[in-house]
Design a protein around this nucleic acid. Sequence first.
DNA 1: TTGAAAGCGCTAACAC
DNA 2: GTGTTAGCGCTTTCAA
Lengths: 334, 334
Amino acid sequence: MASMKEIAQKAKVSQATVSRVLSGHPVVKPETRQNVLYWAKKLNYQPNAAARSLAGSSTNLLGIIFPEIANPFFSEILDALEEAANFEGYQILLNCTHKSIDREKNILNELKRHNVDGIITIPVSSDDSAQYYKALNLPVVVITKQMEGFNSISVSHYQGGQKIAQHLHSLGYQKVGYVGPVNQSTSSIKFQGFRDFIAEHDMELSDVIETPVPATIDSLVMYQTTKEYLNSYSLRSQALFANDDVTACDVIRALSEKGYSVPGDVAVIGFDNSLLAKKMYPSVSSLSQPLHEIGQQAVHLMLRILNGEQTEVSSYLLDTRVISRDSTVSTITA
Amino acid sequence: MASMKEIAQKAKVSQATVSRVLSGHPVVKPETRQNVLYWAKKLNYQPNAAARSLAGSSTNLLGIIFPEIANPFFSEILDALEEAANFEGYQILLNCTHKSIDREKNILNELKRHNVDGIITIPVSSDDSAQYYKALNLPVVVITKQMEGFNSISVSHYQGGQKIAQHLHSLGYQKVGYVGPVNQSTSSIKFQGFRDFIAEHDMELSDVIETPVPATIDSLVMYQTTKEYLNSYSLRSQALFANDDVTACDVIRALSEKGYSVPGDVAVIGFDNSLLAKKMYPSVSSLSQPLHEIGQQAVHLMLRILNGEQTEVSSYLLDTRVISRDSTVSTITA
DNA sequence: TTGAAAGCGCTAACAC
DNA sequence: GTGTTAGCGCTTTCAA
């Protein structure tokens, strides 16, 4: 690969001048600049990232930490993240915790070695992960959730839960239920918003189907738990709020297999508005998180931090809205 | 961050000795080694990747090039790729072409700058992309398709098309149709296998719904094209082969909206066996590509190349099989 | 078995 | 405006 040295020789200037030209330093004489640029182009010069990094400049590397990739919710965000980062001239180092805090620690060490300029992360735990990120002393942007003391881009899960309840309320459903984890961080917040709205309106929480947090997207645990519940109890709800779209799909399957029609007998609404909700037939109503925007904003926030334009820590909450589809209001003509 | 120099000072040896110990050079005296390791651990030493790279060793960086991320087919492979790579101590530089060959060229330059050890890619075009990869002079592994002159891990799309036809044949469907692009590389090969099987058996290709290649996963073009076809012609097929699972979902929606029941009136089968096929209700029959294995094998093949254990170019074809689900054989009790 | 020293390609401070 | 020079943290000869 062509180096600055070669360009310097061809252009008959010093290597420092080449550096000046290529890093846009203004003092160079126009014709010298032209000449250097000519040779740089001719030799298809690509700056050596390692050398740049070593010599003290930035790496233009962003570390990305996700719990899981093969989940439409995450992969849509990743898509946006990649696009925004590359547009801004950054490369992405992709890492996956699989929800293990030990993996997360290792990843953090790896990213440190590679001198990433910053990290955009969905941390394993909002409580336990914080110390490790703090110790890095690097710009960090947390996404899809909040972590005390860190910049974040997310949505209000509490308000999301409320909006879901409100949607069901506006459709006239009075007895409603919830399917999902009840103690896990974001899930419990959604649930709380949901319950609070119910309590304040003429509604009743008729069923709570508590599920474990699934380890991977392939887990059948939400389906199984729902199926068992339906086998053991008679469902009292007219509408069910599923903790996310994956769960919603599983709930619809379980209900359908037990002979309930959706939404005829029971309405179902998910959370995230990921690909699954859109592609299912009947399509699944869902609370829309602006996935693309989360990715984009995360990158832009990171850039502001790197440019010193943003120094104080802040949490940005993006807007959500209910996307009403077939699973709560049928448009299907029988 | 602790450097070798610091360790050298603490351990009272030269920096060269520290390097020897940490890179596993055998000549070091055991007690010296122990001492150095003690300090390395104590200072939580992390080797500086840039310095390593610059000093001539490998970067442990793998470039990954995908056309798109927010597609379950790709994101499942990416998941496996990340896991295998990290397990082997490699970091992944993720890049997305969005099916543009210009983007692809830029990405290749970016990866070159970062001195990646190798590239695992789904090239934009099996014909036009080749030259740019060749020019890099880096180890390349192509996945999910084949590219002349390059190592690859994929499945036989021709055989896949045949297996689909065979599956439909074995279920007694005689009039069958196809939905998807007919001229695009892999799609046309699937279609050819499908047609050849039909020609050799007592079957008839009754409908061909040609669609454009969708630009993104959010494209509604397959749905729309199918809907228009159904509006214009009366469907003659008893079963439809959809070019991939995303298309299958769209086809099921279009059919259902037109009053066809699936599989009662028309059976539908997809290709890839991605998340969508599994999570849909009714679930979608599909030709299973071993997505996890493709990712894993790609990384392992890359390692063999990097270790000089594999020098000649070869194409590996992994096994596929039909996963029979609700959309071809209903298990749903009405 | 260990140390000294060169050099990877670049940035940035300093001198002219 | 431009050249010279000193590192950045490591790997790798070459000597001792």
